[in-house]
Amino acid sequence: MDQGRSKPDLIIFDCDGVLVDSELLSCRCLSEVLAEFGIVLSAEQALELFLGRSTKAIEQHYRDLGQAVPDGFLPRLKSHVLKTFEGSLQPIPGIAAVMSELRAPFCVASSSDIDRVSLSLDVTGLRGLFDGQIYTAQMVKHGKPAPDLFLYAASKMGAQPARTLVIEDSVSGVLAAKAAGMTVWGFVGGSHYRARDGLAILSAAGADRVFAHMSDFWKEA
């Protein structure tokens, strides 16, 4: 697919930072829960280290530092994130309108677990758009930036990687999509990019295009 100029056979959306404006919320939750266990990590550092990554990546990061996270960390983090999302999570502006106009099949492929993705889509009113077509890192051996999740989603949806378009907000997601042989557009309209140069960050990672407003979804594509 040439930079999206020909319409794709499948569009894969990341969830966090693309469908829902969750990245800052989840990084704050991670910082707060780590602090409860005596580990210091600011929300800004969490954003740099773990944007678009799974909880396995968090555990591996601290194992590599010789500082394994305690047994109760993941359940506590999940509980805190879900509670925070229930009260504060908002959809990305304009995403519902974009999706209502799509003619190509689409699905979600997220590094988050199925409970978090389901809640995110429920509280933002987007769940009904996906009709169960939700794929998460729990379903594959290797999460982003490995291509496994995107290849798995495309296979399940019956699409060829070369005819698949991915919408991503993270470097790890862009790298995963490119490794899968897919076209990837970087989206930088989430609140976590207000103080960061998302265009430079995602372009450097290999995004075929970067845009900041869902109203521009097909413009210059």
Rank of each mutant, 00 (worst) to 15 (best):
P91Q: 11
W185S: 02
F150T: 00
L175T: 13
C15Q: 05
A68I: 00
A195I: 07
I92M: 15
R127K: 13
R127Q: 09
Y135L: 12
F37L: 11
L77W: 08
Q160N: 12
V166F: 07
E32H: 04
G125V: 03
V210Y: 13
L102D: 01
E220H: 13
Y62V: 01
T84F: 00
S155E: 14
I95G: 08
Q3I: 04
K178G: 08
G128M: 06
D197E: 11
H80N: 06
S88V: 04
G132M: 07
A162C: 12
A159M: 05
A97K: 10
S54C: 05
R209I: 01
L41A: 03
L30D: 01
F50V: 04
F73E: 11
E36S: 07
F217T: 06
K178N: 02
G173M: 07
F73D: 08
W218K: 10
A180P: 04
L126W: 04
W218R: 15
A96W: 02
P105D: 06
G190W: 06
M182C: 08
M139F: 00
C29P: 00
P91R: 11
A96N: 09
R28Q: 15
R103F: 00
V33L: 02
P145Q: 12
A207Q: 06
G189K: 10
E59V: 10
G186H: 08
T164H: 09
L102V: 00
L25S: 06
V123H: 00
K78N: 04
L49V: 03
V18T: 09
E168L: 12
S31G: 02
